[in-house]
């Protein structure tokens, strides 16, 4: 479920209990989906060579780092886009002066 549709659904229902329920479940679902995506990504590209009889500590540490760096990457990209957006606006403003 996308955020927009959930929010529309939320405002369309007068029932506050149902509205709250939808908001909480949407958040939970976004969490779950990202866990699925990160598990898949870290598994096939980064951390899992050959599945052994148990998850050894090195592999486990790799998964933890993989999650941390994935989130760092996403935050870095978001910040940098914001910065370039700001400097673009500043540039076009200085051009129009």
């Amino acid at each position: 479920m996308s955020m927009d549709s959930a929010q529309n659904l939320g405002t369309a229902t007068a029932d506050p209990q149902l509205q709250h329920f939808i908001e909480v479940e949407t958040q939970k679902q976004r969490f779950q989906l990202l866990v699925h995506q990160m598990t898949e990504l870290c598994w096939q590209e980064k951390c899992m060579d050959k599945p052994g009889p148990k998850l050894d500590s090195r592999t486990e540490a790799c998964f933890v780092n993989c999650v941390e760096r994935f989130i760092d990457t996403s935050q870095f990209i978001l910040n940098r886009l914001e910065q370039t957006q700001k400097s673009k606006i500043a540039f076009s403003e200085s051009m129009s002066d």
């Binding site: 969490f31 866990v35 599945p51 998850l55």
Partner: peptide, 15 residues
Amino acid sequence: DRYMDAWNTVSRAYN
């Protein structure tokens, strides 16, 4: 089994 371990590890790390 290892995929489930990985899933749980990722879930905990993200959390």
